[in-house]
Amino acid sequence: MTIRYKDRFAEILETCRPAWPDNPNILKALLAVQSARGYVPTNAIPQIAQVLGVTDAQVAGVLSYYSDLRTQPPGRHLIRVCMGESCMANHGARVFRAIQDYIRMTAGDPTQAERFTVEQMSCAGNCAVSPTIMIGEDLHGGVDPSDVPLLLEPLS
């Protein structure tokens, strides 16, 4: 952690400090931290709690409740595969397996470490062009398992 980063972190948190008479909003603060950092480090919980004027346990409770809040840094590319019903019906599970296979293939290579994080997501609202995957904020629809290498290869 550099000093610079610490300052920025404090800065982000400062924007979440509740202005009287508003109540502290823990979820909003955690989302702000995540959108700046990519995740919410658990060792930052005391600092977040202090700025918001709540207990550590309250912050930890909210952090663990929401599946989109991450406590580990994601890989350079975050891949989310939709597991909603329309994607299931269109055999999205096969796409998920193809992604896992692709990544497993490169597993031994140290340059590939931390390249991808793969997660399942709930419906992306792209059900009419399913199966859906999201790479970062980029959404891809109608994905066939055979498309996977083409989609992932260019991502370094």
Partner: peptide, 25 residues
């Protein structure tokens, strides 16, 4: 506009309001 954080039950109205106040939904 306020963002949710990936919890299905937060679509239920009372859970949604809890979440809107920043708590566990």
């Amino acid at each position: 506009v306020v963002s949710g954080a990936g919890s299905y039950v937060c679509g239920e109205e009372t859970a949604l309001l809890e979440s809107l106040e920043g708590r566990r939904g």
